[in-house]
């Protein structure tokens, strides 16, 4: 028992920093850019995605010997879409403010690459327990990265944090940071800092990697002559 425990712990912690889905694996970029304008929205998004990720990872891992390999992506999508619908209706019923902040991005968790990527890249090859730990770790990593960006953007762009105005800067915030260009800009800066730290530790810089991408698993990448490399 002690032996399995020592193996499971790294599965949980690797999602925080080493394999952070947003900053190292470059997955789930759409919600990262769109929802990081307020801290409340970012935490809401992170928690919703984490819940979906844990449940789908567990289900897909449990069904990994039942689902035929050829139709696995449609099967995963059906499972993920059902779970997203459940979470979406729960949020709508009990947290209407969060629902309003997330808007269309809540049902779009269905096509969030983190979830399909972990299903196809991890859960279908590992045990249920390991997949749940992986889901928790990845979910926390996603939430942390999203919150870090949201804090930067909210403080600079609207002079508040979690909806509370910060005296001194709330009168004249730099509005551009909560607008779309600010999203790209902050993401670029945060990633540059992470790359700098990673390279100093001898790790490669973050890049779009086919190994994490569910979309082009079978046909390969259009940009690299079907060889695989850096697309999607």
């Amino acid at each position: 028992m002690a032996d399995t425990k020592t193996k499971l712990l790294p599965e949980l912690t690797k999602g925080f920093i080493q394999e952070n889905p947003v900053l190292r694996l470059v997955l789930g970029t759409c919600p990262t850019l769109a929802i990081s304008t307020t801290l409340t929205g970012a935490v809401g998004m992170g928690v919703a995605a984490t819940i979906v990720l844990i449940i789908t990872n567990a289900l897909i891992s449990a069904l990994r010997k039942v689902i035929p390999d050829k139709v696995r992506i449609p099967c995963y999508i059906t499972i993920i879409a059902s779970m997203v619908t459940v979470v979406q209706y729960l949020v709508k019923a009990y947290l209407p403010d969060i629902d309003k902040a997330l808007g269309i991005y809540l049902p779009l968790i269905t096509v969030n690459c983190i979830i399909l990527g972990r299903a196809d890249g991890y859960a279908n090859r590992h045990t249920v327990a390991a997949s749940v730990f992986d889901g928790v770790g990845m979910g926390i990593g996603f939430t942390a990265a999203l919150s870090a960006m949201a804090i930067l953007r909210e403080v600079l762009g609207s002079g508040s944090i979690g909806g509370l105005a910060i005296p001194g800067i709330s009168a004249n915030p730099i509005l551009i940071f909560i607008l779309p260009p600010g999203g790209f800009f902050v993401y670029g800066l945060v990633m540059a800092v992470c790359n700098k730290l990673a390279v100093r530790k001898g790790k490669p810089a973050a890049a779009l990697d086919c190994a994490n991408c569910p979309g082009c698993g079978e046909t390969g990448c259009p940009e690299n002559d079907r060889q695989g490399g850096s697309v999607c």
């Binding site: 779309p180 260009p181 790209f184 670029g188 990633m191 540059a192 700098k196 810089a205 973050a206 890049a207």
Partner: peptide
């Protein structure tokens, strides 16, 4: 700069293109 090569510079460029669309 080295640590801006690849994705970070791409994202910053995207920010400027997005700014022009505003």
């Amino acid at each position: 700069p080295d640590f801006f090569k690849g994705l970070p510079s791409t994202l910053i460029a995207a920010s400027l293109v997005s700014l022009s669309f505003m």
